[in-house]
Design a protein around this nucleic acid. Structure first.
Lengths: 140, 140
DNA sequence: ATTTACATATCGTAACACGATGTGTAATGT
DNA sequence: ACATTACACATCGTGTTACGATATGTAAAT
């Protein structure tokens, strides 16, 4: 048995991976459209969700959000700037450590996000089971 | 009871959604890095996966791929052009219907994709259960 | 007090997705 | 058979996004 056998996926695996990614992209596409309809970009939505969905007592700094979004700091800075201009989030420096900048939702941002999130919940009740099925087909 | 109660997500829901998206973005970030290490862009990888992972006998046209990737036709054309320049895919018109353009993997593209897919399979054995857990927390 | 580390900000660049539009091919109606 | 309509892909111009490189301001360490 050649060593390469171990590192190349089978046709079965490829199909399962393709199905999973198809389901994933379908969901992400829904999400992007829903965000657009709500007047947000997909990234603004993600930023806002990680602010509102952070564990109780979390200080939602630029750095924290970068980690949660798998983005670099500077990208989150830019996202925050655009979100601020759109009146969705507000930024202020943390009095406890003035290097930190805390990003919060505005009242309007919160309202929009809550509705958008309800839409996502509904959609995930449909697409969720599909995703789970596709994932289970992949897990050995 | 106000009507708006029905369309705004609860704190619980927000946290569950945020956790799910965090898990999702972590996976997508892994995937992007793995693709980059293999010399591909994330989008080239996705294009190639939908070619290799299509059901038996599927004619992988630009249009078919656009649907599977939730992208517009012209975006897939551009992806294919870049993929062709990189020697990963090849394009030819379908003799049966010369309006169609079929995109296939080159031998090299296939080899790269098989390895990258094996990496994804492995990673999904770890992240998959997390994703499933996050999803189940969302489904009522 | 100086150096080092940390957290955010700014700027320039490249990839990407799309709308609008153009080109070629097939199907339809008369 | 010919004109019209629909279909599938291609090209071009534009705006958004993410990042690397670099700069600024704050805190910690020596």
């Amino acid at each position: 048995m050649k060593a390469t056998k171990y590192v190349e996926a089978s046709d079965e695996e490829m199909r399962a991976l393709a199905e999973f990614r198809f389901a994933l992209r379908s969901f992400l596409h829904f999400s992007e459209e829903a965000a657009t309809r709500a007047g947000l970009t997909a990234q603004q939505h993600q930023l806002m969700l990680q602010i509102a969905g952070a564990p109780e007592g979390t200080i939602t700094t630029i750095g924290y959000l970068a980690e949660r979004l798998s983005l670099k700091h500077n990208t989150v800075v830019e996202l925050s700037t655009r979100g601020e201009e759109a009146g969705l989030v507000a930024r202020r420096s943390d009095p406890a450590n003035r290097r930190n900048v805390v990003v919060k939702l505005t009242a309007r941002g919160n309202r929009i996000l809550r509705r958008l999130s309800a839409d996502h919940s509904r959609e995930l009740n449909v697409l969720g089971p599909q995703l789970i099925r596709a994932l289970k087909a992949l897990i050995t």
